[in-house]
Design a protein around this nucleic acid. Structure first.
Length: 180
DNA sequence: GTACAGATTGAG
DNA sequence: TCAATCTGTACT
């Protein structure tokens, strides 16, 4: 039986959550339609000390305030004026750590921007609680743990040495990894 | 008030 | 390789 992930699952450091998320199923209910796919690629952003993170140096503003909420919340924002980024807030309230979901095991969701388009996610999901929401949540279908590979993060070359951190995780050998 | 850059994508 | 397109942030 698939089971909905509880709040405790999310209240761990982003690096750990990023690994734990791989292999889990993201479920999205749109009216009578139900979409679901396995998470196969994530990226961790560990807050204030991570130059690539929006909350670097404890920065806080309208856009990233959701990052400071407790683990299990959705942090979603618009990038380059046309692409949404779907993040899951990790750790506890007051610690701006989060995990970017980069790809699902689905042709239409291999890439952070495409993923959101497929799931019809937008600003209205910012702050949504994955542990309580009736329109989006995560399921554990108790499959055996996928083999995880750590790699450098993508699209953040400006972050200097932080861009070199192996904080991008994906399921080994999966065909739906996002790549330029 | 204005300027500017970004956790991307898809077309050329 | 490059433009599309918009919001937050840092100036003037």
């Amino acid at each position: 039986m698939p089971k909905k992930l509880k709040r405790e699952f999310y209240q761990v450091p982003a690096l750990k959550l990023a690994r734990n998320l791989l292999g889990k199923y993201l479920v999205r209910k749109i009216g009578k339609k139900k979409l679901s796919a396995r998470i196969i690629e994530t990226e961790a952003y560990v807050g204030p000390k991570d130059r690539a993170s929006h909350s670097f140096g404890w920065k806080i503003g309208k856009r990233n305030k959701t990052e400071y909420l407790e683990g299990g919340r959705i942090y979603i924002y618009l990038c380059y004026g046309l692409h949404w980024q779907f993040n899951i807030v990790a750790s506890l309230q007051g610690k701006p750590e989060c995990v970017l979901i980069r790809a699902l095991e689905n042709e239409q969701a291999k890439g952070p921007g495409k993923l959101c388009r497929w799931l019809e996610l937008d600003k209205s999901f910012d702050g949504e609680d994955l542990a309580c929401s009736g329109r989006i949540w995560l399921e554990d279908r108790s499959e055996k743990k996928p083999q995880v590979v750590a790699a450098k993060r993508v699209g953040i070359d400006y972050a200097g040495s932080w861009a070199e951190k192996p904080w991008r995780f994906y399921v080994k050998g999966n065909a739906f990894i996002s790549r330029k």
